[in-house]
């Protein structure tokens, strides 16, 4: 049965392999040229939403309880773990999404209010809202005519 499935999958596997190799080559090139830092896990985005910074990270299959967030006034660290998803009694044909243990830190461009951080997990995407410290809030300055 195992070989049966594999045979049917073979042409796709060949394309997959080519794609992976190409990705690797391009990544290596980017890194050697210093164009892009190595992509770490989880993939994330940081957004400046005026009153707060919003960090989103893709953590599919990671349970709430396995995520830990720590913050200082200018940095944020996400640590977590995705447990092996291989169910019992199943033979493995292909495993691209392995178990992973990760830790990633982000330096924030301005001081944040650590007490007011909120985090939510939805559809495998972690969203952390980091309100800016009053000191870092933008202030309007009126210009006086002299």
């Amino acid at each position: 049965m195992l070989t049966y499935w594999m045979d049917l999958n073979d042409p796709f596997r060949a394309f997959d392999n080519v794609r992976r190799r190409m990705d690797q080559v391009l990544r290596d090139y980017d890194e050697s040229a210093g164009l892009r830092a190595r992509t770490s896990y989880p993939r994330a985005s940081l957004r400046d939403a005026k009153e707060a910074f919003v960090l989103t990270a893709e953590v599919p299959g990671v349970a709430e309880a396995d995520l830990k967030i720590t913050a200082t006034h200018d940095s944020l660290t996400i640590t977590g773990e995705r447990k092996a998803s291989a169910p019992e009694g199943y033979a493995v044909h292909r495993q691209e999404r392995g178990a992973i243990r990760f830790a990633r830190s982000f330096a924030l461009p301005a001081k944040i209010d650590v007490e007011k951080i909120t985090a939510g997990l939805k559809l495998g995407v972690l969203t952390v809202t980091l309100p800016k410290h009053p000191e870092s809030q933008p202030k309007a300055i009126t210009v006086k005519a002299q």
């Binding site: 049965m1 169910p87 199943y90 044909h93 559809l123 995407v125």
Partner: peptide, 24 residues
């Protein structure tokens, strides 16, 4: 993007798991 998948099999069924973060 080709999502990462796992493919498992037992005597009753195939099980495919695919990472689709952010998708409803």
């Amino acid at each position: 993007i080709a999502p990462a998948v796992d493919i498992y099999e037992n005597e009753r069924e195939y099980l495919v798991l695919a990472d689709l973060p952010g998708v409803s």
